[in-house]
Design a protein around this nucleic acid. Structure first.
Lengths: 188, 188, 188, 188
DNA sequence: TATGAATGAGGCTTCATTCAT
DNA sequence: CATGAATGAAGCCTCATTCAT
């Protein structure tokens, strides 16, 4: 009898926790409703299929991620492109660290219909725009903006993953390390 | 009554083809034995479980990959570190393009027990050694060799994936693009 | 959507009939659900495994058995121990004859985790108490009450089994035969 | 290349050990040949089916059992029937204790075609003869020799089982306990 | 809205047995 | 005599989904 959104949120959170803990395949709808504390029928009131939750989770993750980064970027002065990039990097790393487990499960474990996901495209576009602007303003030059954006984004992922595995999940230290690397790419 | 290796290879190849075409979950052991042209019992004579084939495929992929890159590197002059890196890049890109579909399925679609796979560690170590040597010889300097290796490797993956999706899977063109990027990182 | 107990009972009864007719191993879960007239999933809705039904059957058998004998004993005068024993014997033989087929299948055919089953212990305790009381009251003397209880109980089983095989399953005749035997044990 | 009997014996012993340890159903032919240290084909050289080993084991057990008891009886003076029974009891208890695990598995766990096994019939016949002779000689009287034989035999089984479970597997003590009981049956 | 009993297709796996070498 | 690769029928169990209440 709670508002629908609460129910939906309970279910999605339960699903996310289980997906992270046991993997998507190993998580049954039964598990989800049990953890969420609702009947099985309730699940199918709000989601047409199990896959639906994954998609919903994916969207929620992307929305959160993009919003976080956008919020960070909003506060950076439009003319200092170098600072802008640093802000982007910081925001991205923090947003990723905060939810990398869900990211893994929801974006990797679930078979993509196509190799490139819509979600990744958004964030790449975001970064590409930033890089292109900087290039136009002469802050740096880049032979291929898209390739640079992808390399930076995926490179960031890899380094953060490695830091996490190494037990060093401090965003500040990671960003510093990455800045030294990416600043080399962003030259005139 | 063929030699065991032939059967194993038949089964692994059949499995790989199906995994690529339909995904791991959608591929049944029945599918595999049917394509391999053997009885179902034969599958379980050589693999304890369905998961086992995935693991075997992963290992085979890694071994092949590492060998190909190592073979390429073997032919490059020890003192020209820049050329060496180019060789590594070329070998890696080619090896990846040749098998990226299997790579995807076997490394992404199947849940890793730990986040960092032994397999990735090997190739990162290979590249790290190359980068460290170049640094020692003064060909370039790097604040963090491992971070650079990871960023380069994962960046390469992303860019190649993007190129493949864009329908531009030519190793040469991709390498050129990547060289321009990575050469910026490898500076004194 | 019948009450759970009805379904459980249907399944247990179907299982019992089939176990008796074909043996446990030869009876498949498919057979059971078919005879019970429910879907296969329903079986696993109520029992975790096939073994579970056997255990449930065992418990049901024991409960019924103990209750029947206890009911018989309840009506016997507390001071006539000899009559009490006769009542016990009669009740036990009848209860056993009524269900020996299920008893066989469920207690013999299925591997016990331990050699002595909790179930047998209960009935031995019941008889031991009866024998001990008679001994205390001087109706008879016994050097080892437990050993006597076991010998009487197992001896009864053997003789009843033999009578059944010989096609002579009349409880009255069997009890008379057994009384002559056991009365010799129950002497002062 | 060993004499056939050795092979057969190795296989039967391996099977017996595994049947006792894991149960008949849980023991595979693979397990047996592995423990016996021979190839799987060898098993089927000597036994037509898995069931065959069980039957062979049963026969071996019965032969051993009967022989042991017969050997014990051979040494007892023909005219002292009471001593003869004591000898029988002692021999039976010892033979049973020595192999009760195998007995359990091979006679209980494996579904009898009929409720009374040929093997049990032999030992009951042996005891019945002994009891009948004693009765004829006036050493005791019995209203129903067969019923007494069965009750004594099965009663013995139960008491020995109980002693084993209680961790008291000493044949002497058990026999004494049983003698006190059975002597009450064997009266004039 | 909410529930949970009921379903059944279909997956994975086992294992006794055969037979070419 | 001995082997062990090969088989395939058959079993147990899972689980997403439906629907009557």
């Amino acid at each position: 009898m709670l508002p629908a959104e609460v129910r939906i949120d309970d279910l999605m959170t339960a699903a996310a926790d289980l997906f992270i803990a046991k993997g998507i395949e190993a998580t049954t709808v039964n598990d989800i409703v049990e953890l969420a504390g609702v009947g099985k029928g309730t699940f199918y009131h709000y989601f047409a299929t199990k896959e639906d939750v994954i998609l919903a989770l994916r969207e929620r993750f992307s929305r959160d991620f993009t919003n976080k980064v956008a919020a960070a970027l909003a506060e950076c002065p439009g003319d200092d492109h170098r600072a802008c990039f640093a802000t982007w990097l910081r925001g991205t790393v923090e947003a990723y660290i905060a939810n990398y487990e869900l990211h893994d499960v929801v974006f990797h474990e679930f078979r993509h219909s196509s190799r490139n996901s819509k979600e990744k495209e958004i964030v790449i576009a975001q970064l590409s725009a930033l890089l292109a602007e900087g290039a136009k303003a002469g802050a740096w030059s880049l032979p291929d903006v898209r390739a640079a954006a992808i390399a930076i984004y995926d490179g960031m992922h890899g380094v953060v993953d490695d830091a996490i595995v190494a037990g060093n999940g401090d965003a500040g230290a990671i960003c510093e390390k990455l800045s030294l690397l990416f600043d080399r790419i962003l030259i005139a």
